[in-house]
């Protein structure tokens, strides 16, 4: 049959669900091994964060779509969590290979890293379903859950979300072409506008780089 937009969207959803069917709701044995290799084991904080963000996501989803859809929000969040653990494992494997390191204590105890990675995973799920937002599952096309909605839900700075996108795409080879285009669109939205909003961490980074440049340009004192 010719590929209609709805059929294409449905196949993307089915593909996502198929990929995530084999993923787990909790960290895999390989992830647990990485956690155990850390100077400070991040496992408890990771599980606590996933649980607390689920409550927040479910509440915001229900507020946006309708109280009757809270369970749908919970299901979407759970798919996002599976993708989050799956991508985290893939990222750590590639970083281990690239850096010949097994102790990722600093990265795995970084709250912003985990919140950004989980937000990206949930955004992939939301965008996949969003393309097929129809009356059938109760979410109306008018409810705009599209990016950057997830940033507000997780109270996440756009530039921190931006930092995980490329590594996320590299770590998840089964992302569809449409999804990669969507994430690229998110990048452009962030770089062209969201990252320049007041309070963005980008301004601090620019300030630090300017300070480094000015220090590098200062002549050395004669004693040196």
């Amino acid at each position: 049959h010719p590929q209609t937009p709805v059929r294409a969207a449905m196949s993307n959803i089915q593909q996502l669900i198929m990929i995530l069917n084999s993923a787990t709701d909790t960290p895999s044995d390989i992830l647990i091994t990485y956690f155990n290799n850390c100077t400070v084991n991040p496992k408890d904080s990771i599980l606590k964060r996933v649980e607390s963000l689920e409550h927040i996501f479910k509440k915001k989803f229900a507020e946006a779509v309708g109280q009757g859809c809270a369970e749908i929000g919970s299901q979407r969040y759970k798919l996002g969590v599976r993708l989050y653990y799956r991508v985290m494992e893939s990222m750590l494997k590639s970083e281990e290979e690239r850096l010949s390191v097994q102790n990722f204590s600093k990265l795995l105890n970084d709250n912003i890293f985990h919140t950004s990675l989980l937000a990206c995973a949930v955004e992939v799920v939301m965008a996949t379903y969003g393309r097929n937002a129809s009356q059938s599952d109760g979410t109306s096309a008018e409810t705009d859950l599209s990016f950057p909605w997830i940033l507000n839900v997780f109270d996440l700075k756009a530039f921190d979300f931006y930092k995980v996108i490329e590594s996320f795409i590299k770590a998840e080879p089964s992302l569809t072409r449409e999804m990669i285009k969507h994430l690229q669109h998110c990048e452009h939205q962030i770089l062209e506008s969201l990252a320049w909003q007041s309070g963005s961490p980008l301004f601090e980074l620019i300030k630090q780089s300017k300070e480094r440049e000015s220090q590098a340009e200062q002549p050395e004192p004669p004693s040196a």
């Binding site: 850096l99 990265l107 890293f113 490329e166 590594s167 992302l175």
Partner: peptide, 21 residues
């Protein structure tokens, strides 16, 4: 992913982006 413009250098990854190198 061919359409995606990868910007990280060879020696860069998620660890550098979160200052964990």
């Amino acid at each position: 992913a061919q359409d995606y413009h990868f910007g990280l250098e060879e020696g860069e990854g998620i660890s550098e982006l979160f200052d964990c190198d």
